[in-house]
Amino acid sequence: MTPSTRICASGDPMTAPLLSVEGLRIETTGRKPAALIEDVSFTLARGETLALVGESGAGKSLSAMALLGLLPADAIRVTGGRIVLGGEDITHAAPRRLRQIRGGAAAMIFQDPLSCLNPVLTVGRQIMESLKLHKGLTGAAARARAIELLELVRIPEAAKRLDEYPHRLSGGMRQRVMIAIALAGEPGLLLADEPTTALDVTISAQIMTLLDQLRADIGLAILLITHDLPAVRMIADRVAVMYSGRIVETGGADAIFAAPAHPYTRGLLSARPQGAMAAGAPRLTEIPGTVPQPSDRPSGCAFRPRCPAATALCAAERPAVRPLGDGRVACHHAGTAIIQGAA
C-alpha cells in the first residue's frame, strides 16, 4: 500500500496523517484585507513526500511559513481553517508552544543555507545549540550526537567537519549541515523550501537522494516546496499544484506527470521542454498572461483568463475541489472533452 492510498481514519494515531491542513485561509491585515491563501487543504503521512509546486507568487512558501507560525503577525495572519500536527491543533498555538514545535516536531530548511547559518560559529556549535534547546544535551553527549547527525546526512570525516566554519563548506555540504541541524530535534515533519534551487544538477541529485533516504530510514514526512520539476519527479509520492493562492490539483506523482487533469497543471508540464527541437519536438506551450495579484483575482476560477478551455461557467462559479480518478481537482471541465480538446 502506498502512502497516498492510505485512508485517514478519525483520531487513530496509527492511521491518522502526521500533518493535516484543512481549509487554510491567510489574509493581509489592515483596512482592506486581501486573501493570499484560500481554502488550502492537504494531508501528509509519516514516511511520505508531498511536493507543493507552482510558480512564484502561488502561495507555496506562505503556506509553509504558516505551518510553523512564521508569518509576520502585524502584516499577515491565518483567518480560517485548521493546522493539525501529530493530533494537536496548532493553528493558533501560543508563541511559546510554537517555539517548541519549530525544530522539535517540525523543522524547516531553506533555499540558501549560507544566509541561514551563522558565519562566526562553527558547524558543531550550531548543531549543538539545537541539541541543547530541543533535547537538553550538552557537553560530550551533544558533541557525540552532533557527529552522528553529520554522519546521518552523509558528510565525510564528520568529526573533523564539526569545527569548520560555514564559509569553508561547499553549497551542497552547507545544505547537508542545515539538514543535520533540522534533524537535531528529531522532527517527524521536515519542510524543505526550495532546498536545491541554488545547487548544481549533480549536487541537487545528491540532496534529493539524501532526503529520500531519510524519509525511508527514519520515517520523516517531507513537505517539498519547489518549482524544480525534475526534483519533484525524483522523490515525491504525491503532488499538490498551487495557483493564485489555492490548490488546483492533488494526486499521486506518477498520475499527475502522466495525465495532469487541471489545465494549469497541463500548461505547466507542457511549458517544460521535453525532447529536442532538432529531432522534431513540438513548440513549447506558452501560458499567456501572468499570475494575478491577490488583490485582483478574477471571479469564478482564478485561472480562467489564462485558460484555453474557459467557458461562461468558469467566470460565474468558482470550481469546488472534487475527486477525480485517484486525485482531486478544482476545475469545472477536468476530465471532460472540453479539456482534451483545448490541449
Binding site: T202, Q206, T209, P230
Partner: peptide
C-alpha cells in the same frame, strides 16, 4: 539521468559522489 524526461524514457538514475 537527472532530467524530467529521463525517467519517462526509462533511464536509471546515476548519482555522482562528491563535488567539483
Amino acid at each position: 539521468a537527472n532530467t524530467l524526461s529521463a525517467r519517462d524514457e526509462g533511464l536509471s538514475p546515476l548519482v555522482l559522489e562528491g563535488e567539483l
